[in-house]
Design a binder for these strands. Structure first.
Ligand SMILES: [Mn+2]
Ligand SMILES: [Mn+2]
Ligand SMILES: [Mn+2]
Ligand SMILES: [Mn+2]
Lengths: 217, 217
DNA sequence: CCAAGAATTTCGGTGCGCCTAAAATATAAA
DNA sequence: TTTATATTTTAGGCGCACCGAAATTCTTGG
């Protein structure tokens, strides 16, 4: 059984790998808030244990077994997030820190029970896919709200969960998962967007829109 | 914020104190499955930090602040146990290990949410009282099933949760919290009891009966 | 009362994961 | 191509909580 910290390393390597392709010591250090020196040490250890391959001074890549381990944690994290929202009625902006701890405490039995109580969900409260028990992840096809054409209507399928304040603000203006958004106008000078959710019209910044992912409808 | 291990020490000191009065290094060592040498070290540290008083070679006693900290963990443990049974449908014999981990991961907000979802329970699945947030514990008046008089009927209010196999067996014979038990006969030669639960009559050993606590009805 | 024997504490040492400072390597500007 | 700067690794060390072995202190039967 990997230690809590090793699980955090693997999960975050996986996440960086997914979005940036290459995983450097500094990017991991940044994400984990741990000094580059310590990360470098841990990376060597994980390479010895066979969870990843490390090309010194170059970067890191998960092995199959490392990836499996990472996906287990991602699954647990997202199941817990779902649980916190659905069963304990937390807001989607309040759950990350709690799930960050809980993900390391989940026996197989617990995982199954929670999965069942939730009705075997396929995405977490932010729209991120929950890997299956066997370790497959559905990729959700979507594009950023910034790329939507004027006049079209879309549905929110995912919101970047990296920033709690953003999430909090988004829900405060009625912007949540599965909501329909009509794009009225894009302002040329700052790329802000005038949108309509339900009957309410509002303006949102380009930065916010970059973090909202939608599908056509 | 005390470390996970410190929380375990404080909780177990509290529990030993409750049942045996005096808390020795060896009793703690036994309960925590940690060598006497290590326990002795930790005890010194806890004394320095003001959570307990330590008379070397004699024993240990929680200070007010230590007791408060201990009760917080007891509360969390029992709330989690309740939660595992009521919401996730675990059996009362499967929850201790999970709760042992979860008790250390519970923000104030989480504690409140769970308490609320459960309807502010006053006892855990084994009938042990859940300390209030302010740190008071209701003592439940009860006596062991071994002390019941022949012919009388009693209600189960608590079962010793120290042994999972006992709990598993108890529920397998229909013996659970709040069940009514009629004591038919006590066998002189081994103190075993012939009891009736609902319409089913059965014999239980004195050892089992010692772990079942009841009130008159 | 005293000497085993039992319980407890002290001592020296370990593994884990962290850190800062220094050394090594890579990269990019001149 | 060189050299300066940025990135990464190595070296040396720390705190926490653990251990076994040795030393200390308590207890108790003779
Ligand atoms: Mn985590
Ligand atoms: Mn999420
Ligand atoms: Mn615990
Ligand atoms: Mn219990």
């Amino acid at each position: 059984m990997p230690s809590e910290q090793i699980e955090n390393y693997l999960k975050n390597i996986y996440k960086i790998q997914s979005v940036e392709g290459k995983v450097s010591t500094s990017s991991l250090s940044e994400k984990l808030q741990i000094s580059p020196a310590s990360v470098s040490e841990m990376v060597k250890k994980l390479a010895d244990e066979g969870s990843l391959t490390h090309t010194p001074y170059k970067g890191v890549e998960l092995t199959e077994s490392g990836k499996r381990a990472a996906l287990k944690i991602v699954r647990k994290h997202r199941l817990w997030e779902m649980f916190l929202v659905e069963v304990l009625h937390f807001g989607w902006d309040e759950i990350d820190e709690e799930a960050e701890k809980l993900e390391h405490i989940m026996s197989g039995k617990m995982e199954d029970k929670i999965d069942e109580v939730l009705g075997f969900p396929s995405v977490d409260p932010h729209g991120d896919p929950i890997p299956t028990k066997s370790g497959t992840v559905k990729t959700i096809r979507s594009f950023a709200l910034t790329d939507v054409e004027e006049g079209s209507t879309v549905r929110v399928v995912r919101v970047n969960d990296a920033n709690a304040e953003l999430l909090q603000y988004a829900s405060s203006i009625g912007l949540s998962l599965n909501k329909k958004i009509a794009l009225k106008q894009r302002m040329k000078f700052d790329n802000s967007l005038i949108i309509k959710i339900g009957s309410k019209e509002m303006t949102i910044s380009a930065t916010l829109a970059e973090n909202i992912f939608v599908e056509s409808v």
